Computed example of a mutant assay.
Amino acid sequence: MGCLFSVFTRQQLDKRRIALLQNADEVEDIREKITSYSIQNQYINQERVIDEKPHKDFTKIKCLTKNDESKIFLSQNKSDQEYYILKSINKQYLEYSGMQQQIQNEIKVGKECKGKFIQKFHQHFITNKKCYIILENVQGGNLKSLIKRKQMSVAEIRFYIAEIFMALQHLHKNNVIYRNLTPENVLIDNQGHIKLSDFSLCHFGTECNLLTGNIYYQAPEVSKLQYQNYLSDYWSLGAIMYEMLFGYPPYFHPNINTYKKNKREQIITIPNSISESAQSLLKQLLNNDIQQRIMYESSQKVQYHPFFDGLDWQLLKKRLEQSPFIPDLRTKSDIHYYLEEKSNENIIQQQIN
């Protein structure tokens, strides 16, 4: 029996529709719509598609990191002479990799969740080939480098954990689950205060069940693809506190499969070499039962915890609490802390390999 109809792909149908049109202007208009990047409508307003001129307003001082898909530069704005971080991302890569949502997250958080402990978002623009994001130049390195550099005192740990807590609270009040809290993403600014960065994995809403983030700082419910909410971020905070105290995150093992097994089968052991208040806070942050985790009922459970005795939360909120570490920076373009981060990353990777 013969086939009663033909099957065409969407692309073939689009071409046939164009062929049927008589008006040349209409043909050209439809062709442009068919061939335009769908990414423009998915993560950025089409009005932001511009020529290359804004990109040329920035002088690239130093390439900080690069791969086949993106580059990150220390750059200087020719107008105000200030230094910024410029992210340059290949637009075609975003389209075929499905990472449009991550860029949308970066832009949305940058615009809607501005805060004292959040890396400042300045602007974004898109050209025919690239997407550019301009961010605050945070020069003091990150918390990972600080942990590797020295053994921290309890007072220092208290300061950084409290500031990270304030940053998380700010995101949660804006209906954002961070999902990407790691020591590498906790930046240290020129005055020694923290700034959270990299909001590509954020979730806008009160709950989700997606597997994402750095496995060493994932809450158990994230690893198991179970119900998760803002309390999952506080497990990650506990993992960072654990690393600041002992030099490595909970369950750590350089072999990823062994780590997963440890996390699945073992109970976190907290050495009694630290104070009772530190042990208590760790146990409440790292509770595997999300409904038993600290903060389940009220943020005051954290602020009034004995570990934070003597800390002035009002001063901290205004960034007036004295930081235990002030970066030694000679110029606004000083990047030696960033170079130290890259060196540490290479050493860690060599050890894992």
Rank of each mutant, 00 (worst) to 15 (best):
A239M: 02
Q226A: 14
S273C: 14
N229T: 05
R264E: 04
K260Q: 09
N209V: 04
V222E: 04
Y296T: 11
K263P: 07
Q266R: 06
L225N: 15
L285Y: 05
N209Q: 12
Y248V: 10
N262P: 02
S299G: 09
I256P: 09
L281T: 11
Y296S: 08
L245G: 15
S273F: 08
F252G: 06
Y248W: 06
T212S: 05
S236F: 03
F252T: 06
N288A: 05
S232K: 02
A278R: 10
S236E: 04
Q228T: 04
E243I: 10
N229K: 00
M244N: 14
E243S: 13
K224H: 07
Q291N: 15
N257A: 14
L245C: 15
L245M: 13
E297L: 07
I267R: 03
Y251N: 02
N288E: 06
I290V: 03
K260S: 05
L245W: 14
M244W: 13
L285C: 10
L231P: 00
G247Y: 15
M295R: 01
Q284S: 11
G247D: 13
Y216E: 09
G247C: 09
N287G: 08
N288F: 03
I270L: 00
M241A: 10
L282T: 08
L245A: 13
N288Q: 06
S298H: 10
F246L: 11
N257I: 10
N229A: 04
T212N: 04
H253K: 08
F246V: 08
I240R: 13
S280D: 15
K224F: 03
I256Y: 13
Q228N: 03
I290F: 02
N262L: 06
L285P: 00
I268L: 09
G213L: 01
Y230A: 09
S277M: 01
G238H: 06
G205R: 09
E297K: 09
Q226P: 08
P254C: 09
L211M: 09
N209S: 15
Q292A: 07
N262D: 06
N255K: 08
A219E: 01
Q284T: 11
